[in-house]
Design a protein around this nucleic acid. Structure first.
Lengths: 345, 345
DNA sequence: ATGCATATTGCATCCGGATGCAATGTTAGG
DNA sequence: CCTAACATTGCATCCGGATGCAATATGCAT
């Protein structure tokens, strides 16, 4: 073998080594180099070892772009988010990106105005040959959804779903969550429960609201009031201000971030005590809810399991495996200190 | 012209139209198609219009990957972050991504464990031909920095810098910020000011600490105490717990998120009142600091201007423009209600 | 109208790997 | 030892655009 030991600094140049150069160096063909780096290619173990060894030595790595050009894959997962200021999304992005990186997948992040149509973004991501997308917000046209799945790429709705569009999704059981919250309030003797945060286009909050109201109805307790609003601290603040005046004895906010704004509105805007005067329950379980000022009782989305499920669905290497189904994961009530027992004993 | 009007649905197939196909359709060469889409290429305005019109009609768009293969550019900006749970980073990511998208640049997000060496990530981003990087955390080897700049791509440290590494950065004037905070505390009659959050490897917090201590020294007020800690809510909580026992009359936290944790520790852990018993000042100006429970007085980084500056530096199309310099932008004190006047009148 | 400079367009080839098919090498059965 | 069957490797070509250079077209001055 004629390879010197001292030329391993070939990689230090700004232009990298190509497969053909390495091939010439080894006296073999470029195809063989290529095969050494492709799983399941027809190459003898001996030859592969030799190539990989030389590649390591010379600092050769296949050019991702060139590979992508012919394979139509990229090792990139597109992610569509809005509202990274909502800590819930931030807390998903982090572990999701990390898990994907562990699998050798990069994340192309597309940030959009909340709740919009995202066909244009998907189109764009398609141009970059992303292998899959995780969508956390927005609506998609049926045609775009079809076009996407036609390419054999996975598309995954994370923590929500779009009515009438058959893309797989990973969600927690929102309706059950709503019911659990209702049951908690009922058990603690609440008679005037209100709801905040339903939005016309978000099936997620619908399910939360429906579970909540259904359970109340079954107990014969009417919903005392409802206000909608943006999924922000400010939205929750405004809604609570509006709703609080009519004195419900408890408010269920469809998102923790709204619940925090709501609690502050109740306390600082209306001078009420939480939970003594009014109970508050949230949904999501963001870190801030655990802060001592809030001690928010909430329904926790099982973020870790959801990320795991997402990664599993995205990582399906060969497109001919059975089409995966949406998964609905169970969440759990996290009881802290924003609900007070109002039963008369 | 033989183009029908009804075949504009060519784009609906999962495989897109190539430039050569479009060229054949128009009876021209593929080169001309390519030139029609490249700024500054030699092509007559008339021909370009004709091509673009046909492209629109047939739904042709140049393949980004193929283009990237020969140009070595990608229209992607890599972003390296840690700690998206720190709202400060989340609040940067959002506008930054949006501004870049407006310029037709996508963002490839790389999330790493906080404060580590990120050579491997940069190497990876290089493989994807990213046009530039924005680094928000971590250290880079001198060799990697050189290798990166040798490729003619911009690299930008956002909101921090790495000692000994000459990559341009966009930061606010941290030292001035530290001084301003010190002056504020002094003006309000504080005699026992403490500092929390300096970290050995973060020049940013060093500068904040130095400005703070320098200004105190000039006024003849000794630093009452100092505790370091992680840049998290919990880190601030723990530090305040430790420091609070010795009763400083004020604490300057190097990061708002630590200040919030600190305030909670002082209030709920030690039973102190803020600002009556002890004043607290933060740095960054995250949204949560404005919440009524905290009303945190803080030094605000000029995030919008910093993002603008970053975008301007990244958007330098031709690499032969004068090498841009780092920019240091002025921040400003945001006075809310976590500092009390302790002057005896 | 003629000649030369300049503007456009086409041709051929490159970017770096992936892959179908043919050629060669290897192993096993007879 | 011979040949069928399979395992490896190389060859040629493709993925879809970009671009240097030659060829052609246009414009201008004389």
């Amino acid at each position: 073998m004629s390879i010197g030991d001292d030329d391993s600094d070939l990689l230090s140049g700004s232009d990298r080594l190509t497969g053909r150069q390495l091939a010439k160096e080894l006296g073999i063909s470029q195809s063989t180099i290529s095969r050494a780096f492709s799983d399941g290619a027809t190459i003898s173990p001996k030859m592969r070892a030799k190539v990989l060894e030389a590649a390591r030595k010379f600092g050769y790595q296949p050019n991702v772009i060139a590979r992508s050009l012919s394979t139509h894959r990229s090792g990139i997962v597109g992610i569509v988010v809005a509202n990274m200021t909502n800590p819930f999304y931030a807390s998903i992005l982090q572990p999701l990106a990390r898990r994907l990186q562990q699998l050798g997948l990069q994340t192309l992040l597309t940030s959009i105005p909340s709740g919009q149509q995202i066909d244009a973004q998907l189109h764009l991501l398609l141009q970059y040959n992303v292998d899959a997308i995780v969508i956390m917000t927005g609506t998609v046209s049926q045609e775009m959804a079809r076009r996407w799945t036609d390419t054999g790429r996975a598309a995954l709705l994370f923590s929500y779903s779009i009515p009438g569009i058959d893309l797989i999704s990973v969600v927690c059981d929102n309706e059950a969550g709503g019911r659990d919250v209702a049951r908690l309030l009922l058990q603690n003797g609440h008679k005037r429960p209100a709801f905040v945060g339903r939005s016309p286009d978000a099936a997620t909050t619908h399910a939360r609201a429906e579970g909540f109201e259904a359970e109340l109805a079954e107990a014969g307790v009417p919903l005392f009031g409802r206000v909608d609003g943006e999924y922000t601290y400010e939205g929750g603040y405004a809604a609570a201000l509006e709703l609080g005046r009519s004195r419900p004895d408890s408010i269920f906010f469809a998102h923790d971030i709204m619940a925090l704004g709501g609690m502050d509105a109740l306390r600082y805007g209306l001078g009420l005590r939480v939970p003594e005067d009014i109970s508050v329950v949230g949904f999501d379980n963001i870190p801030q809810g655990a802060w001592p000022t809030y001690q928010l009782t909430t329904f926790a989305q099982p973020v870790d399991q959801m990320v795991e499920a997402a990664v599993r669905l995205l990582n399906r290497r060969n497109p001919d495996e059975p089409a995966p189904a949406s998964s609905v994961l169970p969440g759990a009530l996290v009881q802290r200190n924003s609900v007070q027992n109002r039963t008369v004993r």
